[in-house]
Protein backbone atom coordinates (compact mmCIF):
# COMPACT_ATOMS: atom_id res chain seq x y z
CA UNK A 1 0.00 0.00 0.00
CA UNK A 2 1.39 3.38 -0.99
CA UNK A 3 2.20 5.81 1.74
CA UNK A 4 -0.16 8.69 2.41
CA UNK A 5 0.98 12.16 1.39
CA UNK A 6 -0.15 14.53 4.13
CA UNK A 7 -0.19 18.34 4.07
CA UNK A 8 -0.47 19.95 7.45
CA UNK A 9 0.68 22.93 9.49
CA UNK A 10 3.08 22.35 12.34
CA UNK A 11 3.93 25.20 14.70
CA UNK A 12 2.64 27.67 12.13
CA UNK A 13 4.71 26.34 9.20
CA UNK A 14 3.28 24.33 6.31
CA UNK A 15 4.70 20.80 6.48
CA UNK A 16 4.26 17.82 4.16
CA UNK A 17 5.12 14.25 5.06
CA UNK A 18 4.61 10.66 3.97
CA UNK A 19 3.28 8.08 6.39
CA UNK A 20 1.75 4.63 6.69
CA UNK A 21 -1.84 4.29 7.95
CA UNK A 22 -0.81 2.77 11.26
CA UNK A 23 1.76 5.43 12.13
CA UNK A 24 0.52 7.69 14.89
CA UNK A 25 0.99 11.43 14.82
CA UNK A 26 3.58 10.89 17.56
CA UNK A 27 5.49 8.41 15.35
CA UNK A 28 5.41 10.91 12.51
CA UNK A 29 6.57 13.83 14.62
CA UNK A 30 9.44 11.90 16.15
CA UNK A 31 10.53 9.48 13.41
CA UNK A 32 9.68 11.29 10.16
CA UNK A 33 10.00 14.95 11.12
CA UNK A 34 12.70 14.81 13.80
CA UNK A 35 10.51 16.65 16.30
CA UNK A 36 11.51 14.54 19.28
CA UNK A 37 10.29 16.93 21.98
CA UNK A 38 7.01 15.04 22.27
CA UNK A 39 7.72 11.85 24.21
CA UNK A 40 6.27 8.36 24.19
CA UNK A 41 5.63 7.17 27.73
CA UNK A 42 2.87 4.63 27.25
CA UNK A 43 1.40 4.77 23.71
CA UNK A 44 -2.03 4.21 25.24
CA UNK A 45 -3.31 7.65 26.22
CA UNK A 46 -2.48 7.33 29.90
CA UNK A 47 0.64 9.43 30.49
CA UNK A 48 0.28 12.62 28.43
CA UNK A 49 3.98 12.80 27.54
CA UNK A 50 2.97 12.98 23.87
CA UNK A 51 0.55 15.93 24.35
CA UNK A 52 0.13 18.29 21.40
CA UNK A 53 -2.71 20.45 20.21
CA UNK A 54 -4.59 19.85 16.95
CA UNK A 55 -6.55 22.92 15.82
CA UNK A 56 -6.08 24.25 19.35
CA UNK A 57 -7.51 21.13 21.02
CA UNK A 58 -5.29 19.27 23.51
CA UNK A 59 -4.84 15.60 22.52
CA UNK A 60 -2.47 12.67 22.98
CA UNK A 61 -0.53 12.41 19.73
CA UNK A 62 -0.11 8.67 20.39
CA UNK A 63 -3.88 8.32 19.92
CA UNK A 64 -4.07 10.28 16.65
CA UNK A 65 -3.11 8.77 13.31
CA UNK A 66 -0.61 10.71 11.23
CA UNK A 67 -3.07 10.65 8.32
CA UNK A 68 -5.62 12.46 10.48
CA UNK A 69 -3.37 15.54 10.51
CA UNK A 70 -4.27 16.27 6.87
CA UNK A 71 -5.45 19.88 6.63
CA UNK A 72 -5.13 20.51 10.36
CA UNK A 73 -2.83 22.65 12.46
CA UNK A 74 -0.59 20.94 15.02
CA UNK A 75 1.29 22.69 17.82
CA UNK A 76 4.14 20.88 19.56
CA UNK A 77 6.62 21.74 22.30
CA UNK A 78 9.11 22.81 19.60
CA UNK A 79 6.84 25.77 18.84
CA UNK A 80 6.48 26.95 22.42
CA UNK A 81 9.53 29.18 22.85
CA UNK A 82 9.85 32.26 20.67
CA UNK A 83 13.38 31.75 19.35
CA UNK A 84 15.68 32.15 22.34
CA UNK A 85 12.87 33.48 24.50
CA UNK A 86 11.28 30.81 26.61
CA UNK A 87 7.53 30.77 27.12
CA UNK A 88 6.65 32.01 30.64
CA UNK A 89 5.65 28.45 31.61
CA UNK A 90 9.03 27.10 30.49
CA UNK A 91 10.78 29.87 32.41
CA UNK A 92 8.75 29.22 35.56
CA UNK A 93 9.29 25.44 35.40
CA UNK A 94 13.05 26.12 35.43
CA UNK A 95 12.89 28.73 38.19
CA UNK A 96 10.71 26.59 40.44
CA UNK A 97 12.41 23.27 39.66
CA UNK A 98 9.20 21.73 38.28
CA UNK A 99 11.16 19.03 36.48
CA UNK A 100 13.73 16.39 37.27
CA UNK A 101 14.30 13.81 34.52
CA UNK A 102 12.24 15.93 32.12
CA UNK A 103 10.43 13.17 30.22
CA UNK A 104 7.01 14.44 31.27
CA UNK A 105 7.87 18.12 30.89
CA UNK A 106 6.97 18.78 27.23
CA UNK A 107 3.55 17.21 27.80
CA UNK A 108 2.93 19.20 30.97
CA UNK A 109 3.97 22.44 29.28
CA UNK A 110 1.70 21.90 26.27
CA UNK A 111 -1.22 20.88 28.51
CA UNK A 112 -0.70 23.80 30.91
CA UNK A 113 -0.45 26.27 28.04
CA UNK A 114 -3.73 25.01 26.68
CA UNK A 115 -5.36 25.46 30.11
CA UNK A 116 -4.11 29.01 30.55
CA UNK A 117 -5.33 29.95 27.08
CA UNK A 118 -8.83 28.95 28.17
CA UNK A 119 -8.68 30.12 31.75
CA UNK A 120 -6.02 32.40 33.23
CA UNK A 121 -7.53 32.21 36.70
CA UNK A 122 -7.80 28.49 37.48
CA UNK A 123 -8.11 27.16 41.01
CA UNK A 124 -5.56 24.63 42.21
CA UNK A 125 -8.23 21.93 41.86
CA UNK A 126 -8.90 22.97 38.27
CA UNK A 127 -5.20 22.81 37.45
CA UNK A 128 -4.88 19.37 39.03
CA UNK A 129 -7.88 17.99 37.12
CA UNK A 130 -6.81 19.56 33.84
CA UNK A 131 -3.38 17.95 34.22
CA UNK A 132 -4.66 14.60 35.52
CA UNK A 133 -3.78 12.98 32.20
CA UNK A 134 -0.12 13.98 32.55
CA UNK A 135 1.92 11.64 34.72
CA UNK A 136 5.19 12.52 36.42
CA UNK A 137 7.20 9.91 38.29
CA UNK A 138 9.78 12.36 39.70
CA UNK A 139 8.48 15.65 41.03
CA UNK A 140 5.45 14.70 43.09
CA UNK A 141 3.45 17.26 41.05
CA UNK A 142 3.39 20.09 43.61
CA UNK A 143 6.07 22.16 41.95
CA UNK A 144 4.41 21.72 38.58
CA UNK A 145 1.02 22.83 39.91
CA UNK A 146 2.61 25.76 41.76
CA UNK A 147 4.43 26.90 38.59
CA UNK A 148 1.24 26.85 36.55
CA UNK A 149 -0.63 28.82 39.21
CA UNK A 150 2.22 31.33 39.41
CA UNK A 151 2.28 31.86 35.65
CA UNK A 152 -1.49 32.35 35.71
CA UNK A 153 -1.07 34.99 38.43
CA UNK A 154 1.67 36.71 36.37
CA UNK A 155 -0.59 36.70 33.31
CA UNK A 156 -3.39 38.35 35.27
CA UNK A 157 -1.17 41.10 36.66
CA UNK A 158 0.58 41.75 33.33
Amino acid sequence: MAKHHISTTINGEPVEFLCETQQTLLDVLRDELGLTGSKEGCASGDCGACSVTVDGRLVCSCLVLGVEAEGHSVETIEGMADGENLHPLQQKFLEEAALQCGICTPGFLIAAKSLLEKNNNPTETEVRYWLAGNLCRCTGYDKIIRSVLDVAADMRSA
Binding site: G45, S51, L58, S114, A132
Partner: peptide, 9 residues
Amino acid sequence: IGSTQIQGR
Protein backbone atom coordinates in the same frame (compact mmCIF):
# COMPACT_ATOMS: atom_id res chain seq x y z
CA ILE B 1 -14.08 9.80 30.42
CA GLY B 2 -10.31 9.99 30.59
CA SER B 3 -8.23 13.14 30.81
CA THR B 4 -8.43 16.54 29.12
CA GLN B 5 -6.45 14.99 26.24
CA ILE B 6 -8.91 12.09 25.91
CA GLN B 7 -11.82 14.56 26.06
CA GLY B 8 -10.42 16.30 22.99
CA ARG B 9 -11.15 13.14 21.00
